[in-house]
Nucleic acid binder design. Structure first.
Length: 393
RNA sequence: GGAGGUGUGGCCGAGUGGACAAUGGCAGCAGACUGUAAAUCUGCCGGGCUUCGCCCUACGGAGGUUCGAAUCCUCCCGCCUCCA
């Protein structure tokens, strides 16, 4: 077993874990900033670490198109290429390929599609995807899965799962047993029986970790949460569980409460570039006129480079004028917010106070598409000093 | 002084008798964003109302032609270019 996963504490279904990878240790629950092309947009690797990230995510699909796996391999693997010394998880590209509507065809062997870059024909197979990720030397590789759109009927979701399961077996068999780990992915759309069966099927294959995929594809929030509640308990408790593509802090809190350990999402980084900042007082849209002369920091309790020395008014100005620094500072802030939030969750699990921390989120419940924390909400994740954090980097 | 040109909603700029409260762009006011083809996309953007519609005020100013004018005519005002 190339990846070691130790569970240090439990609080209800939630776990405090330590995932040991070839490039370092990840304290879980953890959030993985998304650096699709090898870098989190606007954020140098050193700054990513400074915000408290212990692991980042990248994407095989994009890297295979440009610059190509051969190039990355020649430049020292993904770590040598992008300069990030810590653990890296790469997504297989299943999510991307299946969003290329009209540009792809799926058969039992794999997916044939056209590159979104130059239209050239490409083909991904379960075996090829595992091999390419291993060649990049990533710490965690993801299997190629079929990510069904929403809505889809149960029969189609079942057929889709059977294909993904077959691919998962082939991926596992292809895996070289090298230093990195391989995660399988549960699908099954919003159908309980399919999800439960999928989780059980996948659990028998001996993956290093298990992901819940196929959520956040347009389904209503209650479905998304239900999928987590059905699936997580069926996945092996001794292996890390990863909820792919999720999400808002409220959704993460919910999933942590149901035993999920890993998360990734473009929201903090993309929203930052688009001017939406996450704060302990709620969501703040820095473009809004009300911040034009607001001298306060975005979040007075935040220690990021933005909040440490700049006002809302300054960031507002940088955003309005299209200054690239606005995007960088906002991204650093949102990532710090997410990473602080994860640290607070870990601390709460250790102390057995997770319910207190996440109750306000739960109250916002399933229907709450918007995670905004009301201005005087006590939920503001307490940013306690976290001794475990010191060990990460 | 003479000749020619030009004046459109906060700005730039289309429009030369009816389909015009007037294309576009910018600025402005909001919204969206969930395993990133996103420094992107969407809505609003003269005023008022009982807002899938109606009323008022509007294309430098005044007057006129016409069933009807941002569009045509007259005069006036401003600006630009060239010649003196």
């Amino acid at each position: 077993m190339p990846l070691r996963f130790d569970i240090l504490a439990n609080d209800g279904e939630a776990r405090l874990g330590r995932l040991t990878t070839p490039h370092g240790v990840v304290e879980t629950p953890a959030f993985m900033p998304v650096g699709t092309l090898g870098a989190v947009k606007g954020v140098p690797a050193a700054d990513l670490a400074a915000q408290g990230a212990s692991i980042m995510l990248s994407n095989l699909y994009h890297l295979a198109l440009r610059p190509g796996i051969d190039t990355i391999e020649r430049l020292g693997g993904l770590h040598g290429f992008n300069g990030w010394p810590g653990p890296i998880l790469t997504d297989s590209g299943g999510f991307q390929v299946f969003s290329l509507d009209g540009l792809r065809t799926v058969d039992a062997g794999g997916v044939t599609f056209r590159s979104h870059v130059d239209g050239s024909p490409m083909r991904f197979t379960p075996e090829g995807v595992v091999e390419m990720q291993e060649r990049m030397g990533v710490d965690i590789a993801m299997v190629l899965d079929e990510c069904p759109p929403w809505p889809i009927d149960e029969a189609a979701a079942t057929r889709s799962w059977e294909r993904t399961l077959d691919w998962a077996r082939r991926s596992r068999d292809q895996s070289s047993g090298g230093p990195g780990g391989l995660f399988g992915i549960v699908q099954g759309s919003v159908y309980r029986s399919v999800r439960e069966r999928a989780a059980a099927d996948l659990s028998r294959l001996g993956f290093d970790g298990h992901a819940i995929g196929g959520v956040s594809v347009g389904e209503p929030a209650p479905h998304r949460r239900a999928v987590v509640e059905w699936t997580a308990p069926v996945l092996p408790a001794e292996r890390p569980r990863y909820l792919m593509g999720v999400g808002y802090p409220a959704d993460i809190a919910h999933a942590v409460n149901h035993g999920v350990d890993l998360f990734d999402c473009v929201l903090p980084s993309r929203n930052a570039r688009h001017g939406t900042l996450f704060t302990r007082q709620g969501v703040l849209k820095i473009r809004n006129a009300q911040y034009r002369e607001d001298p306060r920091p975005v979040d007075p309790e935040c220690g990021c480079p933005l909040c440490a020395r700049h006002s809302r008014a300054f960031l507002h100005h940088l955003v309005r004028t299209g200054e690239i620094t606005a995007q960088i500072l906002a991204t650093l802030h949102n990532l710090r917010y997410y990473l602080d939030f994860m640290a607070a969750l870990r601390q709460a699990i250790r102390l057995g106070t997770l319910a207190d921390l996440t109750a306000p989120f739960a109250g916002r419940a399933a229907g709450a598409v918007h995670p905004a924390v009301p201005p005087d909400d006590p939920l503001a994740p307490p940013v306690a000093a976290d001794p475990i954090e010191q060990e990460i980097f």
